[in-house]
Simulated scan of single mutants.
Amino acid sequence: MVAADITDPQAVFTDPVAGAILDLGEPVVIVLAGVLHCVDDPIAVAGHYMRAAAPGSFLVVCDYVTENDILRARIEALMAATAPSWRVRRARDVDDILRGTAVLRPGAGDVAHWRPDRTPLRSITGMPPSLSLYGAVARISRSKYAGLYLCWPHSRSSR
């Protein structure tokens, strides 16, 4: 275990424990599960780790999401006493973290659906139906054109 601030990737990468087990020249799996709800800017944090990762690396994300604004506000208010930056996001917020990656099957969604043969987490924990753990596994794209859309003219006659 590395005792460092997840929002400070340099501190994580220079930690002696991380240095002993990580070779960032080789593909790695970056697991951001159970932590993103404590991060104010998950896109920036995930971006730092993805840029440091070698080609062939993967990103795993999982975060609490709800589209219910009232439930989001209630949970954040309840958690404010212990974790002031605790956030419940929308699914599109997690999708934004995954932008520029190749999301693998079964795709981004409620992780309880990944293993339909198992008892859903919400039935064990009493988690409300409108709150889910939304996640994905993705291959990190190393192309400089990832996310870049090029538009070509329909005709070359304008040259």
Score class of each variant (00 low, 15 high):
L98R: 09
A102T: 12
A136K: 01
D117T: 08
P129K: 01
S130Q: 12
R142T: 12
M127S: 13
A112Q: 15
R99M: 08
S132P: 10
G126T: 02
I124F: 01
G135A: 09
V103D: 02
L121S: 08
G100L: 06
D117M: 09
V111M: 04
V137E: 00
V111H: 10
R139Q: 13
L133Q: 05
P116T: 07
G109W: 14
P120R: 01
L133N: 14
G135K: 03
R99T: 01
R139C: 06
R99A: 13
R105C: 08
A136H: 02
A146R: 12
I140M: 06
L133C: 07
R115W: 11
A108W: 09
A112H: 10
D117Y: 10
T125K: 07
P128H: 06
R118H: 13
L121N: 02
P120I: 05
I97W: 03
G109S: 15
M127R: 09
V111E: 00
S123Q: 15
T101E: 06
L98P: 02
G107E: 11
R118I: 11
P120L: 07
R118T: 14
L121P: 00
P129A: 07
R115F: 15
A112I: 09
V111R: 05
S143A: 09
S143R: 03
R139E: 04
S123G: 15
S141L: 08
Y134Q: 10
G147W: 11
H113Y: 11
I97S: 01
T101C: 07
A112C: 12
H113G: 10
R142V: 09
G100V: 04
A112V: 10
V137S: 01
P120C: 03
R99Y: 09
Y145L: 00
A136Y: 00
G109L: 10
Y145V: 02
A108N: 15
D117V: 11
D110G: 08
P120D: 02
I124P: 00
G147E: 14
I97P: 00
A136I: 02
S123W: 13
R115D: 13
S123A: 15
I97E: 03
A138K: 11
G100P: 06
D110M: 14
M127T: 15
Y145F: 04
H113I: 04
G126C: 03
L133H: 07
Y145H: 02
